[in-house]
Amino acid sequence: MTRETKTPDIKQGPDIKQGKAPANEAGAARAPAAATSAEVAAFVAKVKALGPASGAARGRLLFAMDATMSRAPTWDMALALQSEMFRAVKEIGSLEVQLMYFRGAGEARASRWVSNADALASLMRQVACHGGFTQIGKVLAHARRESEKAKISALVYVGDAVEESIDDLAGRAGELALLGVPAFLFQEGDDANATRAFREIARLTKGAHCRFGPGSAAELRALLTAVAVYAAGGQKALQALLGRPEGEGARRLLGQMGR
């Protein structure tokens, strides 16, 4: 059944205060599919087209997560991937990130905007998975409202399912596209409906969609790091990372961008 399309205000405050993530439940889960080389190549091409934020002192990146129970089996891995991707921008000081998540019976929360990678990682570790339906419409509507206040460089979304009308999501994605905010959607697993929805949102916003699983975590960590750095300062920021230990993602991204 299609979820309601009304989008109530997102709860927002200086901190996200929730319990620790629960331990994985017993039973082996089916391993998510890894990203294909074609998907990664397409993602890199979209990042190249993104360009640095303009007209703002800082880049602004909204990072949204599906925290429903279906993601619990791989939640710890996902948190590590998502929190580490900002460490490379720690010294740039020109990227602000807002964490948003949804779960449970209509719960959707957004953190304050932070410019410190450690603060973001701390916020992420406080989020636990609860059962519920997807609320991607709220994510897109929130991104639109935030970008109307101050330009957002990009939206990154990580999830594994879509339980809303794709047409409704496309409408909200179109609103985001009018503000020039690309959406980069990372799909955990290979749910066909989620793939269709994520690809359409990415197409409408001129963003990108890429699947990930345990076999592609390292590669996608590097790409996510590059997205964060690129949103903060464009190719110059990526070039500055080449000589640093955390610059592998920048090296690989620039190498593919130069082909």
Rank of each mutant, 00 (worst) to 15 (best):
R3K: 07
P8N: 10
D9I: 03
I10L: 14
Q12M: 15
G13I: 10
D15W: 09
K17N: 11
Q18W: 03
P22I: 03
A23E: 15
N24H: 08
A26Y: 10
A26H: 10
A28S: 09
A31E: 15
P32C: 05
A33T: 12
T36V: 03
V40E: 15
A42I: 02
A42K: 13
F43P: 00
A45Q: 10
A49D: 15
L50Y: 03
L50T: 03
L50H: 01
P52V: 12
P52C: 00
A53S: 13
A53Y: 06
A53K: 12
S54W: 02
S54D: 11
G55W: 04
R58P: 00
R58Y: 13
G59C: 08
L61S: 08
T68V: 10
M69D: 12
P73C: 08
P73K: 04
P73E: 07
P73I: 07
T74S: 12
T74N: 11
A78M: 14
L81W: 13
S83L: 04
E84F: 11
E84Q: 15
M85L: 13
F86T: 09
V89E: 15
I92R: 07
G93T: 09
M100R: 04
F102W: 09
R103T: 10
G104V: 04
R109A: 06
R109T: 12
S111C: 09
V114C: 07
S115H: 05
A119P: 00
L120W: 13
S122W: 12
L123S: 11
M124Y: 04
M124N: 09
R125L: 06
R125Q: 14
C129A: 13
G132N: 07
Q135G: 03
I136L: 05
G137C: 06
K138N: 10
A141P: 02
H142R: 03
R145W: 00
E148D: 01
E148Y: 01
I152N: 04
G159T: 00
D160K: 02
A161P: 01
E163N: 12
E164A: 05
E164F: 08
S165L: 06
D168Y: 14
D168M: 06
L169A: 06
L169V: 08
A170Q: 09
A173L: 09
G174S: 13
A177P: 07
L179S: 12
L185K: 01
Q187L: 15
N193E: 14
R196G: 00
F198H: 08
R199V: 08
R199A: 14
R203V: 05
T205N: 06
T205K: 05
G207C: 06
G207M: 06
A208R: 07
A208L: 10
A218Y: 01
L223V: 02
T225L: 01
T225E: 04
V229M: 01
V229Q: 00
Y230I: 02
A232T: 03
A232R: 02
Q235L: 04
Q235H: 04
Q235W: 00
P245G: 07
P245K: 13
E246Q: 14
R252C: 03
L253M: 15
L254N: 09
G255P: 00
G255K: 10
Q256G: 03
Q256Y: 11
G258A: 14
